[in-house]
């Protein structure tokens, strides 16, 4: 009699504990693991510089960064904001334009055949070469130029992913609605659009980091002194090497923030595509 209840109660206890433990592990893993990785990275960086005895004009070390941030804190805030909003606007334009081009190519075979070489060629042109052209074309319109380059560099993956998502829609999905007399617009809103969302967000994650590259290209090259790119450039001209590294870290931080905003949006709008690990 004594051991009869145990097989019943024991697994239940184990299960209850297990569920709590799993939750704890997940919590700690998703928060603690990346922080630990960053700390390890900083320690290795510091060690590398220390072991080689590099002066800060060869490579600044993490311990050089806090003073750099402290002395230019207000500049970091102002210029960080300039970089951020222009990147986000460029990205927003890229989303609108990229989705539009993707829809045109996704629904029409002719347009897909016609536009693909043009798009690929356009994407293959290094944007660093386009920067001076744009800067000369719209002299003085610094904000506009920066947004334009951020947009140009980031719309390609969005256009391609949307067009692929739409053109690979299985015919049965269409038939289900078409046999009920649904219009093309209804089929797009009810089926084609939601089905393409996972591909779209995948591309958006790539586009986010690309847009930062575009913004900074313009900021470094153009002489208007705005954005983190300009701050980087001033560090270079003033031989303030820790400042240059501090800008890089600030850019990385902004990139991570925007990336995780996209991830949160993806969870909200396309969370269904994520299968539970069990």
């Amino acid at each position: 009699m004594a051991d009869i209840p145990s097989p019943v109660t024991r697994p239940r206890q184990a299960l209850g504990l297990g569920a709590g433990r799993v939750k704890d592990t997940l919590l700690s893993r998703s928060v603690v693991a990346p922080i630990a990785a960053v700390i390890v990275f900083l320690i290795l960086w510091e060690l590398l510089v220390w072991a080689n005895g590099w002066p800060d004009y060869v490579m600044a070390s993490p311990s050089d960064l806090p003073p750099a941030y402290a002395s230019y804190w207000d500049l970091f805030l102002v210029m960080g904001w300039q970089t951020l909003w222009r990147t986000v606007v460029g990205l927003a334009v890229a989303v609108v334009f990229g989705v539009a081009v993707g829809m045109i190519m996704g629904f029409s075979r002719t347009m897909r055949d016609a536009l693909y070489p043009l798009l690929v060629g356009f994407n293959a042109v290094p944007k660093a070469t386009v920067v001076p052209i744009v800067a000369l074309l719209f002299v003085g319109a610094h904000d506009f130029n920066t947004v334009l380059i951020a947009f140009m560099i980031s719309f390609f993956p969005i256009a391609v992913s949307v067009s692929i998502g739409l053109s690979t829609l299985e015919p049965e999905y269409r038939d289900i609605l078409r046999s009920l007399g649904a219009s093309q617009a209804t089929i797009f809103w009810k089926i084609a659009l939601p089905k393409t969302l996972p591909e779209f967000f995948g591309a958006l994650k790539v586009a986010v980091t690309l847009a930062f590259i575009g913004t900074n290209l313009m900021e470094i090259v153009s002489p208007h002194g705005r954005g983190l790119g300009a701050l980087f450039d001033s560090g270079k001209t003033n031989s303030d090497y820790p400042l240059m590294f501090a800008v890089l870290i600030a850019l990385a931080f902004l990139g991570i923030v925007l990336y995780y905003i996209v991830v949160a949006l993806e969870k909200t709008f396309a969370g269904w595509a994520e299968r539970s690990p069990t």
Binding site: E170, K195, A273
Partner: peptide
């Protein structure tokens, strides 16, 4: 001559909308 709403269809592939 055209699709009509008085018809229901089911295929070998259940084509349910995952979202």
């Amino acid at each position: 001559t055209s699709p009509r709403s008085t018809v229901g269809m089911a295929f070998q592939n259940p084509v349910l909308l995952e979202w």
